[in-house]
């Protein structure tokens, strides 16, 4: 075996020395400052003109709990509607058919281009435009009887959400390598089946983080339905303070519940992300 060449002089062997720990002064000082500021804020609120007894009294009252249930029910249902619409519209947008493409683009433009609260008000007051709705010859009904606050909120929130979700889904589907689609076609799959079995499941991994985010936004967007009399959390909290004038206390009650819900949802979203990453984890070889 040929011997290795001799190493040059002047470069000592440092392998025996350890790297010293840095004191990170700036971190300690800034942390201390932040703690001081937070303590001051907490103290200010504690001494402010808030009757905390009202907050604790109304925190778990029946009307508030009903409000939370209604909020969550609406958030889940509207999100489901939004996801279904989002997938359909995204597929339409990526279709070779120009009519489908244009309809999809038009839907996205219309429902992303107007404020959500405006859409909710339009749905709720639909009977001003169409006093009766129905299928000619089959069924008709008064629009006001059909368009309850629940349905108006569901349609308003869900259809609006669909416009945003469709963009997320479209990005997700485009992120899947085109080779996947070609491999599916090569074994005889049609476009829709390839989308359903091969492309969408892979798109899910890319799509879950933004969708989880959208759902958290949806939970709070339901508060807009208070103006169309859907009895969600904010609406019910308002009714209480309309009666007893305790505006800030009841808003704090509502705010605390929203915070709690979001704090539970955030780690759940992370679990969901991990499940969809199955099969794509890079194992150490």
């Amino acid at each position: 075996m040929r011997p290795a060449p001799a190493l040059a002089e002047g470069f000592p062997d440092l392998s025996g020395m350890r790297i010293a720990r840095e004191p990170h002064w700036f971190r300690w000082i800034s942390a201390a400052l932040i703690v001081v500021v937070l303590a001051a804020i907490v103290r200010a609120f504690a001494n402010g003109q808030i009757e905390w007894s009202y907050v604790s009294r109304f925190l778990t009252v029946k009307v508030i709990l009903e409000g939370i249930v209604n909020t969550m029910v609406m958030a889940v249902l509207a999100m489901m509607l939004g996801i279904v619409l989002g997938i359909v519209v995204a597929i339409m947008r990526l279709s070779p058919n120009p009519v489908l493409k244009t309809v999809a683009a038009g839907y996205t433009w219309l429902f992303r281009g107007t404020p959500l609260i405006l859409q909710l008000l339009l749905w709720f007051n639909l009977a001003l435009v169409f006093p009766t709705i129905g299928i000619p010859g089959l069924w008709s009904a008064r629009a006001v009887d059909v368009m309850t606050p629940f349905l108006a909120a569901l349609l308003g929130l869900g259809i609006n959400q669909g416009a945003y979700t469709s963009e997320v889904m479209r990005a997700g589907m485009l992120s899947v390598d085109i080779g996947q689609y070609e491999a599916a076609q090569a074994i005889g799959m049609g476009r829709l089946r390839a989308l359903r079995r091969i492309v969408l499941p892979q798109a899910m991994r890319v799509v879950i983080p933004p969708l989880g985010n959208e759902f958290i936004g949806m939970v709070k967007a339901t508060s807009l339905a208070s103006v169309i009399q859907y009895p969600e959390l904010l609406h019910n909290a308002e009714n209480i303070y309309y009666a007893n004038s305790r505006v800030i206390e009841l808003l704090i009650v509502a705010g605390l519940w929203y915070l709690l819900v979001v704090s539970i949802l955030t780690p759940l979203q992370m679990l969901l992300e991990r499940r969809f990453a199955r099969g794509t984890l890079r194992l150490a070889r």
Partner: peptide
């Protein structure tokens, strides 16, 4: 008044 007009 809107709700009255619509018959709700």
């Amino acid at each position: 008044r809107n709700q009255l007009k619509q018959g709700r």
